[in-house]
Design a protein around this nucleic acid. Structure first.
Length: 862
RNA sequence: GCCGGUGUGGCCCAAUUGGUAGAGGCGUCGAGUUUAAGCCUCGAGAGCUGGGGGUUCGAAUCCCUCCACCGGUACCA
């Protein structure tokens, strides 16, 4: 018998799949199934996260094909972005060249992993044939008023020299380089995603096949709140200033009023006043504070009195006007009515600045009204309104609608819904991205590039200096152009788009990747969408998925698709972790396998901390798929990743586990090959051992139970670890029932054949190479994707005899064998008759008899 | 802080949703095979299910509370 040679058979089948176009899918499918995995950034090397993603995706592709679906399984490249440009700066190569090479490498790695794709549909977002349509989409949004330019304070990463979206700022630092992010005022392009806030929120209800977790994250990010906008009058100037509040019921408790440092009225109010310098110095200081400082909640709240007052519209009371560092310009109106009795931030500020506190909500269990002196913190829970004029005695927050109505009648407030979601800033001051198709003309102003002039291509005559300036701005041939309207000399926009724009519509382009007359064919989109299964990392739960949903809805409104949601079902895989070794003083280091000693720091000798953490180069705990392919083969990597833990949770990468996977595949090989030989000998004699009907039935039962289990796991959240465990059980059972190295007894030949074939078919989605090879050894015709997924027979799978547990007062006292499906009376009677049970119930009163069919009997006695 | 999630043999994890705590794997130990080790085959042990309280005939599962870790988010008025 030949040994299992992974690399040899893997290459053989990879060539087979390619040469036979196994994963090519028809444009007009009978049973369409769009199986999408998140396309990678072509960094040049697959990382383990990709491998996890695509191994899950490939298992689904093959499973669905075996179930008769026309599976669309495409692959492409999210090819624009910073790393290519940075690499270009470093290596002196053009990003285009660097990119092409990276893609080639990764395509080869994907082949070696054995993932099945329809390569005729490959797309790259950096290809002019693709980004032409990204620009076209920009123009459609622009014409609809959904793309606009405005000067806005933006997150500026000084190290990357570019603008970052809010979502790319991780607690005040750049998500890429971790430098502290500054605020900068720049003219920027935005997409009006906020117009869709309510629909993005409401339609989450349609996504019943999305993880609750992801929907919740999106809900939080959209951050819908209801409240009122209330107008206050400034005493000195008579200016009306509005503020948004979710608690208009507490307006009687307003004791001061606070502006954000960026609020334009601040400067106006102090202009020429004695305290002008003091206040403006404070404003400047706050503005200069980094985002890190400003968003650190534990930091002291500071502020300055503006020596001016506000008139509270509900009762005409005066309240001091302040500017403070804890109010954000970005939310609401940048001005806050402060109710220290009901808001902990206002409370702390009032205490610090010695401002008055008026309780307006009385804790419900109190008989007498609470006083300001009694309060140790703000009361923001439900209660009874006090000191609130006409609303005294009412319960809040229930009466908020009534309060708003009352205010609206008086004309100084109105109901309003607010969102945390901001418009999507897409401008990037970088070369390696999609040029924004806008031209600036002195006479005509901002002019969109006519559609027939697309694409606006990236110029090649650029210099990569690594300095802050966008290289595009330095390209004469690019910048200088003619105005499409009047023909006069004009200049091009030099900002490029955020790469999330590229990836927000790629699932359309896969449908018609080479189409020239349009971005996609609407009929095809209506047919293949929404994506039947989308699989990717949970790190894209907010940005990518939100932007794609927004695009889908905008496309719908533009008549470009009939659908409103892009992804019907979503599966998010967990992170891949591995132990990392960390010294408290000297940081992460290689583990002790590499020259270290007994887990001690090589620099200081202190004991290293050992903890499983997300794989990262900086932690020295990465694993390269390539190395696994070389050492063990792709099937081993695939098997290990799928067999160890449920894929939606994380995976702890353990070297021994990989060995275990390799061992299993060897055993699978030996076992199936041995059975193949025995089966080929087609035994006819009964042998010396007499036939054993129960043994035959038991093996068949196990086979059908296993098919049922694996099918169930595919249909329920992809619990591949338990599916694989079930197959292992079947193999163990079969080996015990019929020694693979001995001639098969005649009566076992068919049951064994059924079991062996099932094993190979059931494992195929996970380890396709070895299974194709074994399938051939069994005398069958490849490829396995054409073999129908096995059906199980419920009758064969059902046990005819079951073990019933007998409890007395909840304690296990006996086990009895009974025919499956016995009725409750029979079970109870049998339980009472059991000799062991009798000892426990004799002479006692049976209070209650519980029977669970085929499971247990519980007798409650006194 | 707030919103999610997780906590089960030494380790990764099952338990078809309230019914025997243990499927599968890793590691360990033992036996067989081997000149020996490894590989391979067969077998074994190991637990108050994070702590406490409650509901129930019965709780890993449901409820309350606390703790630990992971993820998201964060002065959003």
């Amino acid at each position: 018998m030949e040994n299992y040679k992974a690399q040899k058979i893997e290459r053989k089948w990879q060539m087979y799949w390619r040469d036979h176009n196994v994963f090519k899918v028809a444009d007009r499918p009978e049973k369409p199934f769009f199986n999408l995995t998140m396309f990678p950034y072509p960094s040049g090397k697959l990382h383990i996260g990709n491998s996890m993603n695509y191994t899950i995706g490939d298992a689904i592709t093959r499973y669905k094909m075996m179930n008769g679906y026309d599976v669309l399984s495409p692959m492409g490249w999210d090819a624009f972005g910073l790393p290519a440009e940075n690499a270009a700066i470093k290596a002196g190569a053009h990003p285009k060249v660097w990119n092409a090479k990276s893609i080639e490498n990764m395509r080869e790695q994907m082949r070696r992993a054995g993932w099945g794709y329809d390569w005729d549909r490959e797309v790259s977002t950096a290809h002019p044939g693709y980004y032409k349509w990204t620009q076209w989409i920009f123009l459609q949004l622009y014409n609809k008023g959904l793309a606009y330019k405005k000067a806005a304070p933006v997150n500026w990463c000084p190290s990357c020299a570019t603008v970052l979206a809010n979502e790319q700022v991780i607690s005040g630092t750049c998500e890429r380089c971790h430098a502290e992010v500054d605020k900068k005022n720049l003219a920027q392009w935005f997409f009006r995603i906020t117009d869709y806030a309510d629909r993005l929120l409401d339609d989450l209800k349609l996504l019943d096949k999305w993880p609750e977790k992801v929907k919740k994250m999106q809900e939080n990010w959209i951050g819908r709140s209801e409240g009122a906008v209330i107008d206050f009058k400034i005493e000195s100037t008579g200016d009306i200033i509005s503020c948004y509040t979710t608690r208009p019921d507490t307006t009687w408790g307003v004791t001061f009023f606070v502006f954000a440092a960026e609020h334009p009225l601040v400067e106006k109010l102090v202009k020429g006043k004695p305290h002008e310098k003091e206040v403006m110095d404070f404003v400047k200081r706050v503005k200069r504070q980094s985002i890190i400082d400003r968003t650190d909640e534990t930091r002291e709240k500071e502020g300055m009195f503006l020596h001016d007052y506000i008139i509270n519209p509900v009762n005409g009371e005066k309240a001091e006007l302040w500017v403070a560092n804890y109010v954000l310009m970005e939310f609401g109106t940048g001005a806050v009515m402060a109710v220290p009795s009901d808001d902990q931030r206002d409370f702390l500020f009032a205490k610090k600045q010695d401002l008055p506190i008026i309780p307006v909500v009385n804790p419900p269990d109190r008989k007498t009204p609470i006083t300001a002196e009694e309060m140790e913190e703000a009361w923001c829970k439900p209660g009874v309104m006090i000191n609130s004029g006409p609303f005294d005695g009412k319960h809040t927050p229930e009466c908020i609608p009534e309060v708003i109505e009352w205010m609206e009648r008086q004309g100084f407030a109105k109901f309003e819904v607010n969102y945390k979601l901001r418009d999507w800033g897409i401008s990037r001051q970088r070369y390696w991205g999609v040029p924004i198709p806008i031209i600036y003309c002195d006479k005509c102003g901002e002019v969109p590039v006519p559609e027939d002039q697309l694409p606006v291509e990236l110029p090649m005559d650029v210099e990569f200096t690594g300095k802050g300036e966008n290289p595009l701005a330095g390209s004469e041939s690019f910048v200088n152009t003619d105005c499409p309207k009047c023909g006069a000399a004009a200049k091009r926009e030099t900002d490029t788009m955020d790469t999330f724009v590229d990836s927000s519509w790629y699932f359309f382009r896969y449908l018609c990747p080479r189409m020239e007359g349009g971005a996609w064919d609407i009929e095809q989109a209506n047919r293949w969408h929404p994506v039947h299964q989308y699989t990717g990392g949970v790190e894209h739960a907010i940005m990518h998925l939100m932007y794609s949903r927004f695009f889908m809805k905008a496309f719908h409104d533009l008549g470009l698709t009939k659908h409103v949601e892009p992804f019907g079902a979503l599966f998010t895989q967990g992170m891949v972790n591995k132990v990392a070794y960390k010294c408290r003083v000297h940081g992460y280091m290689l583990d002790n396998a590499d020259g270290g000693d007994d887990g001690k720091c090589r620099k200081c000798g202190q004991k290293l901390g050992v903890k499983s953490e997300k794989m990262s180069k900086s932690k020295f705990n990465t694993v390269a798929p390539d190395e696994i392919f070389e050492k063990f083969g792709a099937d081993t990597m695939r098997f290990y990743m799928m067999s160890d833990s449920p894929p939606d949770k994380g995976l702890d990468w353990v070297e021994e586990g990989v060995h275990g996977a390799a061992r299993f595949l060897n055993r699978l090989w030996d076992t199936v090959a041995a059975y193949a030989e025995q089966l080929a000998d087609a035994p006819t004699s009964m042998g010396e051992v007499p036939p054993d009907p129960e043994k035959v039935a038991a093996l068949r039962r196990k086979t059908h139970q296993t098919i049922k289990k694996v099918t169930y796991d595919f249909e329920h959240n992809f619990q591949f670890n338990t599916a694989i465990a079930a197959v292992r059980e079947l193999i163990n059972h079969m080996r015990k029932a019929a020694d693979p190295d001995l001639p098969l007894p005649a009566e076992m030949a068919e049951p064994v054949r059924e079991a062996v074939e099932s094993v190979v078919v059931l494992l195929y989605p996970f380890v396709p190479h070895i299974c194709e090879e074994l399938w051939e050894k069994l005398g069958k015709k490849p490829p396995l994707v054409n073999v129908p997924w096995p059906k199980y027979d419920e009758k064969i799978a059902a046990a005819d005899e079951v073990e019933i547990v007998v409890q007395v007062n909840g304690k296990l006292r006996a086990r009895i064998q009974m025919p499956a499906g016995s009725d409750k009376d029979a079970m109870i009677a049998a339980a009472k008759a059991d000799a062991k049970v009798v000892g426990y119930i004799e002479g006692k009163n049976i209070v209650k008899e519980i029977a669970v069919p085929d499971k247990l009997v519980n007798l409650v006695v006194k």
